[in-house]
């Protein structure tokens, strides 16, 4: 890929007889947000460890085109006797000594920790440590950010904030972000790589992933009143592969999305049923993920 910030070629990592990664090749475009997903033990943390220089591949090559890489481990921990401010200040001094000290407070504010900046981190919850880890990772605006499960320990509001932060980094930094929370990946990532037992089984955009999964398209038709009659009418058409009724919603599936989009409204008009709404049923990344990894 042209302008790739992260380039991985045929990386294999073995621990004795155990293969953690096998011939993984991927490329992350500069300024994009790349989601690395996979079940536990798929090799996500190992791959991030290699990219951050903490582990060496058994075979293959990789390149990270950045002078400054920010890394957030999945369960960040710091010396308990340091304050939050000191942790971020240490990170700034090590990776970006030229950046003004005032940026420490700005980053702590961004991660919601300014009010506890001078508290020792020994008393921090896991969610607060994760925010602190993120603050220490983003200080100095790294060109590449490697985030291992950055929102795993956070409450819904905290997750939203972290995901917003990651989204805001798009363009300025290249983010590789592992997660098993597919909803998070779906919200912020441009490209996704699915790892299964150490192998990259899919790499591409989320739209492509869902579209190329080879499954039928579906629309949900909300009606007023009894939908049984509509179900019977729709079942009579040859292009309809499946119809289901739940409450007042009729879900119509067809092998071809194009045919469904062309024919459905026409058929609904003929059926003479009160229609409240018609919307496409989007298959979640989770649905596709389960299909790909199982």
């Amino acid at each position: 890929m042209e302008h790739a910030a992260v380039d991985v070629q045929d990386i294999t990592k073995r621990y004795g007889d155990t293969v953690a990664l096998e011939d993984v090749t991927l490329s992350v475009g500069r300024g994009s947000v790349y989601g690395l997903v996979g079940p536990n033990g798929a090799g996500k943390t190992t791959l991030l460890g290699i990219l951050s220089g903490l582990r060496k591949p058994t075979a293959g090559t990789f390149g990270v085109d950045a002078a400054h890489i920010g890394v957030l481990p999945d369960t960040p921990r710091f010396d308990s006797w340091l304050t939050a401010s000191e942790v971020v200040e240490l990170s700034r001094a090590l990776v970006a000594p030229g950046v003004a000290e005032s940026s420490v407070d700005a980053v702590l504010e961004q991660t919601g920790l300014l009010s506890v900046a001078h508290r020792r981190v020994g008393g921090f919850s896991r969610g607060m440590l994760q925010r602190l880890g993120l603050a220490a990772a983003v200080i100095g605006e790294p060109e590449v950010l490697l985030l291992d499960e950055p929102a795993a320990a956070l409450d819904p509001a905290g997750r939203r904030e972290v995901l917003d932060m990651v989204s805001e980094l798009r363009g300025a930094s290249t983010v590789v972000f592992s997660s098993h929370i597919l909803d998070d990946v779906q919200q912020v990532c441009d490209t996704v790589g699915i790892l299964k037992q150490g192998q990259l089984v899919y790499e591409g955009t989320l739209d492509q992933l869902v579209r190329n999964a080879g499954h039928e398209a579906a629309y949900a038709v909300r009606i007023r009143g009894d939908g049984t009659q509509l179900v019977d009418v729709l079942k009579s058409y040859g292009w309809v592969s499946r119809v289901s009724l739940e409450s007042e919603v009729v879900t119509v599936s067809a092998a071809s999305g194009a045919v469904l989009e062309r024919e459905l409204v026409r058929c609904l008009a003929r059926a003479d049923v009160p229609i409240v709404s018609v919307r496409p049923v989007e298959r979640s990344l989770e649905d596709v993920f389960l299909e790909v990894t199982q």
């Binding site: 481990p73 710091f78 010396d79 990776v95 220490a136």
Partner: peptide, 13 residues
């Protein structure tokens, strides 16, 4: 001895 703390330091210097 602490992988997370080692990660913090080793990825920065």
């Amino acid at each position: 001895a602490n992988v997370e703390m080692a990660t913090f330091l080793r990825t920065r210097t």
